[in-house]
């Protein structure tokens, strides 16, 4: 029994160390940064180029007071764009990953609240060019991106200027 427990413990710790190695692997981190960065850069550009469309999307969620919607629409796409660009070029990756994680948390909460209110519409996450209905798939997608950006936050080393 004791041997069985010991071998299971070893198996578990071996699996954990493989997982840890994968998550901190520099190529995996680089890939994550480029993918998340590009998604946020593209999303930012689409929203910046058509603010009216983004206003409609934000209004659909019915979460922000109408007085703050326009300000949100003017500022948030630029925060997405800047954080994404910094991440792609590995400049202050921890800081960019923190901002992106924060945005993903906000977006995920918004989608969950909208679903709880039984609302269905195009989330406007990537404008009307790539329409995406809010739903479980959107939440899953956000959680995967959130996981990857949190991994960058904990496992990334400094920025490209410091190397």
């Amino acid at each position: 029994m004791a041997i069985c427990r010991l071998s299971f413990g070893r198996y578990k710790s071996k699996k954990e160390s493989i997982m840890r190695k994968l998550l901190s692997n520099k190529y995996f981190l680089l890939g994550s940064k480029i993918i998340i960065g590009l998604i946020f850069v593209i999303s930012g550009i689409i929203k910046i180029s058509n603010p009216f469309e983004f206003v409609e999307s934000v209004n659909n969620f019915k979460m922000l007071p109408p007085e703050l919607v326009n300000l949100f629409v003017i500022i948030i796409p630029w925060v997405e764009f800047s954080a994404g660009l910094l991440l792609v070029f590995n400049i202050y990756p921890k800081e960019s990953a923190t901002i992106i994680s924060g945005l993903l948390v906000i977006f995920t909460i918004a989608v969950v609240v909208a679903l709880l209110k039984s609302l269905t519409f195009n989330c406007g996450c990537l404008g009307n060019i790539f329409p995406q209905e809010i739903g479980a798939l959107k939440i899953l997608e956000n959680l995967v991106l959130l996981g990857l950006s949190i991994n960058i936050l904990f496992n990334s080393s400094g920025n490209s200027f410091e190397k």
Binding site: N70, I74, V79, E95
Partner: peptide, 25 residues
């Protein structure tokens, strides 16, 4: 600083853009 600079860029862009929107409805 990143958030502040991004917000500033957003405000400046909105002021000069063809498709600008008012800050407050």
């Amino acid at each position: 600083i990143i958030i502040f600079v991004a917000a500033l860029m957003g405000i400046i862009y909105n002021s000069v853009s063809h498709s600008s929107i008012p800050f407050f409805p």
